[in-house]
Design a protein around this nucleic acid. Structure first.
Lengths: 152, 152
DNA sequence: AAATAGTCTAGTAAATCACTTGACTTAATC
DNA sequence: GATTAAGTCAAGTGATTTACTAGACTATTT
């Protein structure tokens, strides 16, 4: 499972992706839209800023905005930045590698081999999916739903 | 990330799979072999027994053994039994579903759609991999390594 | 009866998570 | 240049979960 923090980060960045190019957006506006505790969101956005994913402006008319276009930011990147673990075991994680204390031989551990397979499949999907995709997929789903409601 | 508990369960079951058909095995023997804290392992094996995956015998000559052949027990099953989360978000989990409090509309949430893709890919791998596969892969890897050492 | 093994209920220390508080800085506007 | 609007940052905290341990009990074999 990913943390609330990672989930909030994804939600917030998806909002900023939707509004990309329209100038800065207030923390509180994002927090309201996505029902994220405001002070917690502050921390999260700040951290993403320090990692270069966001820019901000202080003072009146300020706020946050994406540092890069939405199609060049992947979900995988975001999860890694917010400490979200892609791997199911530390011994197959690229960013948070730690060997298993009790493992006799990592190279011949069958469990590890399977978990590595899972990790690679997960990373493939998450690294291929960008914020732009996220927004688009949401919009498509909404259209589909509206069409359905109309047809009833 | 999966819990230590899930990992220990996998390790213990892999040992029992390797010894399948050779009669019961002592908790302490498994614990020693895999360097798992013995009292903790007791809990884990008991739980797996209560879920029907293991049988046990008390008294001298007793111990634990698999209730079914290793090729009919999947890694996915084991993780679900030990509370290990396959999904990265509760809202895409089949066994531990919980809707996201703050989500406006689950059906159109782009994040959820991607996470569902990941969950399905993960489940596909883990449900297709059995204890027998785990053992075999470990043995193959060990062979490969020995062959390599010989050739040097 | 003695020894061997699993069973079961509690409890607990440490870590992590999901936040909150409050003081501070910077920038725009009146 | 004072005021207000905004982000920045360091600490702290309550709740939950994790990863165990302790200890008394039950069943089986010799």
């Amino acid at each position: 499972m990913i943390s609330q923090k990672s989930k909030y980060a994804l939600k917030a960045l998806a909002v900023l992706a939707r509004e990309y190019g329209k100038g800065p957006m207030l923390i509180s506006e994002i927090a309201n839209q996505e029902k994220i505790p405001r002070t917690f969101l502050e921390l999260i956005l700040l951290e993403l800023k320090n990692q270069g994913l966001l820019h901000s402006r202080k003072g009146r008319g300020g706020g946050y905005f994406l540092a890069k276009p939405p199609q060049s930011i992947s979900v995988g990147q975001i999860l890694r930045m917010t400490g979200g673990p892609l791997a199911l075991l530390p011994c197959v994680s690229k960013t948070a590698y730690r060997r298993c204390e009790e493992c006799h031989d990592e190279r011949t551990c069958g469990i590890r081999l399977v978990m590595k397979e899972v990790r690679d499949a997960t990373a493939k999907i998450l690294d291929a999916t960008t914020l732009a995709d996220l927004v688009k997929r949401g919009q498509l789903a909404a259209l589909g739903r509206d069409a359905l409601e109309f047809s009833i």
